Simulated assay, not measured.
Amino acid sequence: MLTATAILIDGLIEASYLFLVALGLTLIFGVMKILNVAHGSFYAFGAYASATAIGWWFASGFPDYGSFALMFAIAIGLGIIFGLLLEVGLLKRMYGKDEVIIVLVTFASFLMLEDVIIWIWGGNAYFAFEPYSLLGDIQFGTLFYSNYDLALIGLAVALAAGTWLLLNRTAKGRLLLAVIHDTEMAAAFGINVKRYFTVTFIIGATLGCLGGAVMAPKISVAPGIGVEVIVLAFAIVVIGGMGSIWGAIIGALVVGLARAAAVHLLPEVELFVIYAVMTLVLIFRPEGLFMRQKARKI
């Protein structure tokens, strides 16, 4: 029972931050049909910028709890910057070209952004543990967990609910669903598709940066974290279904719980178990568990 509880809680914590990153990735693909490899660099930039800013914040003697608002501000600021630089400045020129070319463009952007990270922050690891310790701990039987970790679960649930409400209960959200369903038809009905592309990319980039920003207090922020997270995010969207919000939720839960179970029960297969799950899903459901409905062409 104790092990099952530990697997459940650890899996939910793991799934929460992965969902933040995968949600941005699947939103961009669902709307723009772009497999954005550079999304991993958004996460890395969010983590590095957050770690740097948190260190400055606490060294300057500002109110401790203001550091949480600082992380969100950093994610939003970086999301807007990356949205304008990559979507408006680069990807907008690639629309209409072969999908493989666009993927290569995002991969090249990823490589360049990784070099920019090294240029700015170097190869040293950064630590920003202060916000993590601020919220204290909670006990489940003999298990102790940080309230910061549980807050990440709450953040993921809030974003999932907010995304659902935005898409299904607002006029702008329904227009976005129309763009997702059929871009050409949406444009024919007068929807400014290019504007929705830009806004979606900014939101997706912000979510990727937010995933890195909130994870900075939990991890050692070091070169390579963007590569690791983009692989996991791709696994999530492949398992759940490219472009599906529900797929991102279920995929994150599957990956998070699978990793937690492997760590507790069979640590030596922890790296393998995610790809095993992804392979099984692709064998029986090649387009993922929640296949996005396609418009019927006449």
Rank of each mutant, 00 (worst) to 15 (best):
V231Y: 11
I191N: 06
H264S: 10
G208E: 10
A216F: 09
S220V: 00
V231G: 07
I245A: 02
G251Q: 08
V231A: 10
P223R: 01
G190S: 01
F189H: 06
G162D: 06
P267N: 10
A188V: 00
W164C: 05
G162P: 01
A213G: 11
G190N: 03
A235S: 06
L266A: 15
W164G: 03
T163C: 03
G224C: 11
G211E: 04
M242A: 09
A216L: 11
G241N: 13
V193L: 11
N168S: 09
F197L: 12
G208P: 11
K172H: 11
G241L: 10
V227G: 01
W246N: 08
L266C: 14
L253G: 08
L265V: 02
L257I: 14
G224P: 04
A252I: 07
G247T: 01
H264M: 12
A262Q: 15
A161N: 02
G243M: 00
I239H: 14
L176C: 04
V231K: 05
K194R: 05
I249G: 01
G251V: 06
L166I: 07
T200V: 03
H181G: 00
T198H: 10
V179G: 10
A233D: 04
I202Y: 00
L167H: 10
F197I: 13
L177Q: 09
I245V: 15
A235Q: 03
M215P: 01
V254W: 09
I202G: 02
T170Y: 05
T183M: 10
F197M: 08
G243T: 03
S220K: 02
V227H: 09
T183D: 14
I203P: 02
T170M: 10
H264V: 09
A258D: 14
N168V: 01
S220Q: 10
K218L: 08
A262F: 14
V221H: 00
T206D: 04
L167F: 15
K218F: 00
V231I: 13
I191R: 04
A178Y: 08
F197W: 14
A248T: 15
G173N: 02
G256C: 03
L265N: 05
I225G: 05
L265H: 08
G211L: 03
G212R: 07
A213T: 06
T170N: 12
I225P: 06
E228A: 13
I230P: 03
L257Y: 03
L207P: 00
L167C: 13
G226V: 06
R195P: 00
L232M: 06
W164M: 09
K194V: 11
S220D: 02
A260F: 13
A161V: 11
G241P: 13
I230W: 05
I236H: 04
L207D: 00
A233V: 08
G173K: 01
V237Y: 11
G224S: 14
A205H: 08
V193W: 09
A171D: 08
V255G: 07
A252H: 05
E228M: 15
A171N: 05
A171I: 02
D182C: 12
G211Q: 03
A171V: 11
A213V: 06
N192K: 15
V238P: 03
A205V: 07
V221F: 01
G240R: 02
H264W: 11
G240F: 01
A171K: 07
V221R: 02
